[in-house]
Structure formats: structure tokens, C-alpha cells
Simulated scan of single mutants.
Amino acid sequence: MNGLELLVLGRTLIRLAGVAMPVLGSEALPASVRSVLIDVSRHPDSSVGEITARTGFPQSHVSASIARLEEHGAVVTTPDPRDRRRTLVRPAPDDRAGLLVIGADPADEALLEAVDDPRALPEVQAALQTLYRHLVRADPSG
């Protein structure tokens, strides 16, 4: 695989991820903002730095996403009682904005639409899981 093929594959995976991510409420938020919300719902009371490490987004993007989600009432932020310089983020206790996320849906439907032969889906899923395992840093929170 050369660099161009890797770039095309990466862009294709980004497009598929955007299709596979839940839409969340009445406003279609960008997939990257939805990713931050999904991470917060899976890891409540995380710091911005922890969310940054898990999602791989720049800290400025994570902070901007959290601000946007807070405006929508999807998350709440509080100072960390152990270190008041840090901000902790958790899902909002109510679902005023209709953005509550329990977790991301599997990408099976988006992948199924993308493959030429539906019988290839298990092979594609296995290949993607292998790539994820080898190329994505392990979750630092354990």
C-alpha cells in the first residue's frame, strides 16, 4: 500500500464513520463533536485531557466540542475537586436537547452498504479490528 492508497482508505473510513455515528437530536452535529459526546457518555467525569487522549482530537477541538455540547445541554462541566485547574465533563442529568448517548452503534450497516459483496463483511470487520488494535493507542483509562 502506498501513501495515496492509505490516504484514500483513511478518507473512506472517515466518511463511513460519519454515516455510522448516531445523529443525536434535532441538530446534526459533526461526527467529531458526536465522538466527544460518546466518549463523555462512556467515561463520565473525565478531564478534557483524558477525552483528548482517548479521541485523538486536538485539545482545542475537544474544548470547543464540549462548549458546544454544554450550550445544547448535553453535558455539564465542573472543576475537579482534586485539582481546580482541571475541568471534569459528564453527561447532563436530563436529556433536554435529545442528545443523550449510551454508546455508539456498531458500524455494520454503513460497512454493509460500502462493501461490494455482503459476504465480505466479516472479513472487512476483522481487518478493521486488527488495524484498530495495532494502530490506535490503547485506552489510557484502562
Results as ranks from 00 to 15, higher is better:
Asn2Asp: 15
Asn2Ile: 02
Val8Asn: 01
Leu9Met: 10
Leu9Glu: 05
Gly10Asn: 08
Thr12Leu: 14
Thr12Met: 09
Thr12Tyr: 04
Leu16Cys: 11
Leu16Asn: 11
Gly18Asp: 10
Glu27Leu: 15
Leu29Ile: 02
Ala31Leu: 01
Ala31Asn: 01
Ser35Lys: 03
Val36Gln: 05
Asp39His: 13
His43Arg: 14
Pro44Phe: 04
Pro44Tyr: 09
Ser46Tyr: 08
Ile51Pro: 00
Thr52Tyr: 07
Ala53Thr: 01
Arg54Thr: 10
Gly56Cys: 04
Pro58Ser: 10
Gln59Asn: 06
His61Pro: 00
His61Cys: 06
Ala64Thr: 10
Ile66Gly: 06
Arg68Gly: 08
Arg68Tyr: 00
Leu69Ser: 07
Leu69Met: 06
Leu69Cys: 11
Glu71Thr: 12
His72Tyr: 12
His72Glu: 13
His72Trp: 02
Ala74Cys: 08
Val75Thr: 12
Thr77Met: 07
Thr78Leu: 10
Asp80Lys: 03
Asp80Tyr: 01
Arg84Thr: 13
Arg85His: 02
Ala92Thr: 05
Asp94Cys: 05
Asp95Asn: 14
Ala97Val: 01
Gly98Glu: 01
Leu99Thr: 09
Ala104Arg: 14
Ala107Arg: 08
Leu111Pro: 09
Glu113Pro: 00
Ala114Glu: 02
Asp117Ala: 13
Asp117Met: 04
Asp117Val: 11
Arg119Ser: 13
Ala120Glu: 15
Leu121Phe: 02
Pro122Arg: 06
Glu123Gly: 13
Val124Cys: 06
Val124Trp: 10
Val124Asn: 03
Gln125Val: 15
Gln125Ile: 13
Leu128Ile: 14
Thr130Ser: 12
Tyr132Ser: 13
Arg133Pro: 00
His134Gly: 02
Asp139Trp: 03
